[in-house]
Design a protein around this nucleic acid. Structure first.
Lengths: 351, 351
DNA sequence: CTGAAAGCGCTTACAG
DNA sequence: CTGAAAGCGCTTACAG
């Protein structure tokens, strides 16, 4: 009978090192209580065998469930954008919950800072092993991040980033480039003499995100030496009447406008205006595959939507934490989503 | 001391049914050797408890490794297209090999039917638990599929499909719609009086794939009541000189051509011609993000590339087999990839 | 047709 | 600082 020796595994390591498997386990997980000499010996053997722990056995034996906390905006009647990341998060959860991952989701209401702060309080009081969040409010996010760093809890940002913060990973759009592409699409749609209107409809129009997009947008026209083609309009109210008043004023002032680029998902508000005013010759481009926008894409009022795979952002966010916590796999510090162009013709296959 | 009862698991089921866990296991896996009465009783309890087997424990105990066989073309000097699915396949493998999945890849040389047949022989002689393949040769693929069906081996097709065949899943592009979008992009680029040249560079230009794309392409112009804008050119040789001769002839005949749509990845051959002949005003659109094409996209000779996430096709193909075989999860019978539009501006973020 | 027992490769108290 | 033993929730021979 041939002696059957497993050439890997804690048992074999223990056999070779002349110690018990408990000691091997201590070394593998860097737990204290092992003499330096023993530790070095075991580490050498681990290296020699190129030992990879069996994740299956490890998770089964430990019974540890990693608790992930998620902090994202709630979808509202104005925008179901956050449904998509949510779907991705839930898809990831379904896939890995059998491997001992639990996911708890906390929502906040996007304009209301207080709901964000409240959710953060809840996240702080329960002890999570990892956090996935959209850092919608700068100071509050930085504060929470500091707390997590202190507790050694990895944090992943999705959708938007805060520069120079120590997170495990950022998953989101390359904003400058997407603004640049937006400009190109505008250019493609208009005639030589027409101008392009760059619209920002937001109460916080000076946020980092918007500045990046605007930079990219203007860079394109600068490269073409035709920055004068570009008109900028800031609308700081988000109700339909205010938006329309401002648009009307701008059109009176600039009848040569041939295309409009809206810097966020509120492009549907402009679409509604164009349809009501019967201005089908104006080309319209904006962000995000939310259902309001899909409607106008279908009718042709919106020509292009630029999108950044919000569902996959949620999915990848959870999977990054899982890889980091449970599998000890390396995680990209920055993962930029592609810049997708969605049109009437390919919208049925977009996810 | 409170009695700690696990309210799920084979143990609890066995306890409730008054049988051993071995018998429970037999019922769970539909193995024979259980009386009808016992079986029904256990099944009722399983349902009542909504029992979900612990995949971790199951895979660990069984030690079974699922062997997946992959059959795809080799990348060649003409096209590194198949590097992308390969990357996806390897990424999936890395992610799930720790869960007892092994992947073996067989390559064939795309024009050579004999290399396909030879690979199929190898696949048949080794016993795989699942197959991922690109059914590049119709009859041979159907034959192999029959063999797999006989052995009860699930098969997943990627990149192209064979209609009416019983596979586990098809993962690939929606061809008609991508042709339709191609037409729209052409239309967008040209002036009112210009015409569009539809080019097929292939030795098997009548294959199902091409017919579908062509249908979609023409449908677009038909919808605009301007089918006469569309000129079709079949080039049945794939060497550069033959291609250029045909293009030259066509341009002489139709000087009003403003845009060219190439129905596959050989758009780089047309790009080379346009650059050499110094025809920058001709708009060029084609398929696939292969490195040759990327070069011309960067220089602007190619305006748009239509792509179908080849890497993700490979990734999803392997994951589908894993989900089906190891996790008993349901798998989509048809999974259409999105129709991606890649331009100079977003190419850096495309995967 | 059914069950007792060993084992998958780890982790975790607990004892020393 | 170290080890023996039980156990995670299954599967797999083997015996009856």
């Amino acid at each position: 009978m041939t002696e059957k020796r497993n050439l890997s595994g804690v048992k074999e390591i223990a056999r070779r090192a002349n110690v018990s498997i408990a000691t091997v386990d201590r070394v593998i997980h860097n737990r204290p209580g092992v003499s330096v000499k023993t530790k070095l010996k075991i580490e050498a053997i681990i290296k020699e065998l190129n030992y990879q722990p069996n994740v299956l056995a490890s998770r089964l034996a430990s019974g540890k469930v990693f608790k992930l906390g998620v902090l994202i905006p709630k979808s509202s009647v104005y925008s179901d954008f956050w449904d998509a990341p949510l779907r991705g998060i839930q898809r990831a959860e379904a896939e890995i919950k059998q491997y001992g991952i639990s996911v708890e989701i906390f929502f906040f209401d996007l304009p209301e800072k207080s709901t964000f702060t409240k959710a953060v309080q809840l996240l702080k009081s329960s002890d999570f092993d990892g956090i996935l969040m959209s850092p919608s409010f700068l100071d509050e996010s930085v504060d929470f991040l500091r707390h997590c760093q202190h507790q050694n809890i990895p944090v992943v940002f999705i959708d938007s980033n805060i520069e120079d913060q120590k997170t495990l990973s950022y998953i989101g759009p390359p904003l400058f480039q997407s603004g640049f592409l937006g400009a190109k699409l505008c250019q493609l749609c208009i005639s030589y003499s027409s101008k392009v209107l760059l619209v920002n409809i937001s109460k916080q129009s000076k946020s980092y995100n918007y500045l990046q997009i605007e930079k990219g947008f203007k860079q394109y026209f600068e490269n073409m030496s035709s920055l004068q083609k570009c008109i900028k309009l800031d609308i700081n109210e988000i109700d339909q009447p205010s938006i329309e008043v401002q648009l009307k004023k701008t059109f009176l002032q600039h009848p040569e406008i041939g295309a409009i680029f809206v810097m966020n998902s509120r492009v549907f508000a402009v679409a509604a205006y164009l349809e009501r005013q019967n201005l089908p010759h104006i080309q319209l481009i904006g962000y995000d595959f939310i259902s309001e926008n899909q409607r106008y894409l279908k009718t042709g009022t919106i020509n292009f939507l630029i999108c950044h795979k919000p569902e996959e952002q949620g999915y990848k966010g959870i999977m990054s934490l899982y890889h980091h916590l449970a599998l000890n796999l390396p995680v990209d510090m920055e993962y930029y989503m592609p810049i997708d162009i969605v049109t009437q013709e390919n919208m049925d296959f977009y996810r």
